[in-house]
Simulated assay, not measured.
Amino acid sequence: MARKLKSMDYIMLLSIFLIISVIVNIYSMVKLNNYKYKIGQQSYIEIEDFKQKNEINLDILAKSIEQSSIKNEDLLKLYKNYDAMSSDIMELWQQYGSYSQNAIPFFTKNIKTDKVMENEIHGKIKEYALSLLNKEMKNQANKLVLKDDDLISFKFMYDISSKISNYFNEFNNKTLNNITGEEKEKKVINEYYWIDMLDGVYKISDDYINLQWKVESADIAK
């Protein structure tokens, strides 16, 4: 009888342990999923901000190339947009790093890269735009005349923005079926499409990684 009671006690303890383990695992999974969803929410905001500023830049660049000049206020807007876009991309890489560390192996979306900083072309363009701004402030001119290296650089900037814009439009048409609003946000987060979009921007930027941007050193008040 004593042996039987001990066996039952053992089974009961084992059952309690298993129940506690299941509860802890479920809690951990829910907590992890909530964390990953918050990462996705923040990433979605940054992707949308990046896309919007890229469209604004695309319009400015197209007009500037057509006129072979750019007003100082538009040049300032370009600088601010590229600054924000560079920050968005770096934030997205940080979010991707957090996602990768907490994702289940074999069920993780991966971006194959070992040159994030070198690839981040928008930061380089930001520094180039800032250099042009400071040069114009010294010259006290109302606009920058685009010629020679500057005109070539602006054409490259336009090419990059145009390819990124086309990429996002194609992705939206094929993958998101032109859905908008909250439905679009949830799908981008739940399907981790923000990682696909980050990868797409990375691949476009990688084609221009060897471009040299003429940045003049100066004492600049940012």
Score class of each variant (00 low, 15 high):
residue 199 D to I: 06
residue 181 G to K: 03
residue 53 K to S: 00
residue 115 K to L: 09
residue 39 I to L: 12
residue 74 D to C: 05
residue 206 D to I: 04
residue 4 K to M: 11
residue 210 N to D: 08
residue 213 W to C: 01
residue 210 N to A: 06
residue 88 D to L: 00
residue 90 M to W: 00
residue 113 T to M: 01
residue 87 S to D: 11
residue 170 E to Y: 13
residue 174 K to E: 15
residue 106 F to S: 14
residue 15 S to Q: 09
residue 115 K to Y: 08
residue 87 S to N: 11
residue 93 W to H: 05
residue 180 T to L: 14
residue 68 S to H: 11
residue 109 K to T: 05
residue 173 N to M: 15
residue 30 V to M: 14
residue 175 T to M: 14
residue 160 I to P: 01
residue 102 N to L: 07
residue 196 D to W: 05
residue 80 K to E: 09
residue 137 M to F: 12
residue 75 L to C: 09
residue 144 L to G: 04
residue 102 N to K: 09
residue 77 K to W: 03
residue 60 I to C: 03
residue 99 Y to M: 00
residue 150 D to V: 06
residue 216 E to S: 08
residue 62 A to G: 05
residue 153 S to M: 04
residue 61 L to E: 04
residue 120 E to K: 07
residue 32 L to S: 13
residue 63 K to I: 08
residue 176 L to K: 09
residue 10 Y to V: 06
residue 137 M to E: 10
residue 148 D to S: 04
residue 5 L to F: 09
residue 110 N to I: 14
residue 169 N to D: 15
residue 191 E to H: 03
residue 122 H to Q: 13
residue 203 K to L: 11
residue 166 N to M: 11
residue 39 I to S: 02
residue 91 E to R: 12
residue 121 I to Q: 06
residue 173 N to R: 14
residue 31 K to V: 11
residue 132 L to G: 02
residue 136 E to P: 00
residue 17 F to W: 13
residue 126 K to W: 05
residue 157 M to A: 08
residue 93 W to E: 08
residue 181 G to E: 06
residue 88 D to G: 05
residue 201 V to T: 10
residue 202 Y to F: 10
residue 173 N to E: 15
residue 24 V to P: 08
residue 189 I to F: 00
residue 69 S to G: 03
residue 86 S to W: 04
residue 217 S to E: 13
residue 187 K to C: 02
residue 219 D to W: 12
residue 105 P to W: 05
residue 165 S to E: 08
residue 134 N to Q: 07
residue 103 A to E: 07
residue 50 F to V: 02
residue 51 K to V: 10
residue 207 D to V: 03
residue 176 L to R: 08
residue 197 M to Q: 10
residue 3 R to N: 02
residue 124 K to M: 05
residue 90 M to F: 02
residue 88 D to N: 09
residue 55 E to G: 02
residue 160 I to H: 04
residue 134 N to L: 06
residue 33 N to Y: 11
residue 129 A to F: 14
residue 23 I to C: 09
residue 89 I to M: 07
residue 19 I to W: 08
residue 101 Q to C: 06
residue 141 A to H: 14
residue 177 N to H: 15
residue 68 S to D: 15
residue 54 N to F: 00
residue 160 I to M: 02
residue 82 Y to S: 05
residue 113 T to N: 01
residue 138 K to M: 10
residue 100 S to F: 11
residue 60 I to F: 00
residue 97 G to H: 14
residue 178 N to C: 12
residue 177 N to S: 15
residue 7 S to N: 13
